[in-house]
């Protein structure tokens, strides 16, 4: 059962696989984003409460989902790395962190842009915005720790432990912030997020979410490939490919 796992874990095989699927994923991703943006920004109806400015959710919500999803990917890869010492998992965690931080930043800044017309302020101590901000701090700490340690191996392991500590804490932080928020802000701000969303608005949102996931995947794969080349620079398969000029 673990055979495919081991085969995939070999950096050379993974490089080959990533090389084959990346162009396909890129095309699908571009298609999804184009259709999602068109349906979200042009086709979807105007919201009767929020007007046109609600359309920022087509960027905001997928980024927020990605910010959490990528942290989970990092934590998952860190666990695999600590348990089975699988190098590939460490590389994936390493290249994912800056992207996760970027998505978190995107979610925060679009949330703030949305907040100005909706709440009348750039920043509201809303539970979800606050959790995103803390998530950004966690990402920054993760990257800083990895870069601070002298040996890459020690940095990888320390960062993996930190990611696991963080993933245990994320739900606790999230619920404590939510509880804090309801405690300190008794419904003074109007909640716009109705639980139901019309299907014509939901479909572009899901298309965008899928597009963002593929965007991450494409970038993660290409960055992973370059890190693999860097780490395996002295191996024969990289050298022979270099000579054939096929990288």
């Amino acid at each position: 059962m673990f055979q495919w796992f081991h085969r995939l874990a070999s950096l050379k095989n993974f490089y080959r696989l990533a090389e084959i699927i990346t162009p396909w994923l890129t095309v699908i991703c571009a298609g999804l984003l184009a259709v999602g943006l068109y349906r979200g920004l042009v086709v979807a109806p105007t919201d009767y409460e929020q007007g046109e400015s609600y359309r920022i959710i087509y960027v905001h919500v997928p980024s927020a989902w990605m910010s959490m999803f990528i942290y989970m990917v990092i934590a998952f890869c860190s666990a695999i790395y600590l348990i089975w010492k699988m190098k590939l998992a460490d590389i994936v965690a390493q290249v994912s962190a800056p992207m996760g931080a970027a998505f978190t930043f995107l979610a925060l800044s679009t949330g703030s842009l949305w907040g100005k017309p909706m709440w009348g302020t750039w920043w509201e101590w809303d539970a979800r915005l606050t959790s995103e901000l803390i998530l950004l701090f966690l990402y920054i700490g993760y990257m800083a720790l990895r870069n601070a340690l002298d040996s890459p191996a020690a940095g990888a392991k320390a960062a993996a432990i930190l990611a696991l500590v963080g993933v245990v804490n994320i739900p606790i932080i999230h619920y404590s912030v939510e509880w804090w928020n309801t405690l300190h802000q008794p419904a003074s701000i109007t909640k716009f997020d109705t639980p139901s969303i019309h299907i014509s608005m939901l479909i572009p949102l899901l298309l965008m979410a899928l597009g963002f996931k593929l965007f991450y995947l494409v970038n993660m794969l290409s960055k992973t490939r370059s890190v693999i080349l860097e780490r395996e620079a002295s191996t024969s398969w990289v050298r022979s490919r270099l000579q054939e000029n096929k990288l």
Partner: peptide
């Protein structure tokens, strides 16, 4: 995590202050 670093103080704050929030 930071004891082997010469100047771990600021990094330490960055790592653990978010975890102190709850």
């Amino acid at each position: 995590l930071t004891v082997s670093l010469r100047r771990g103080g600021v990094l330490l704050a960055l790592l653990i202050l978010p975890l102190f929030i709850p």
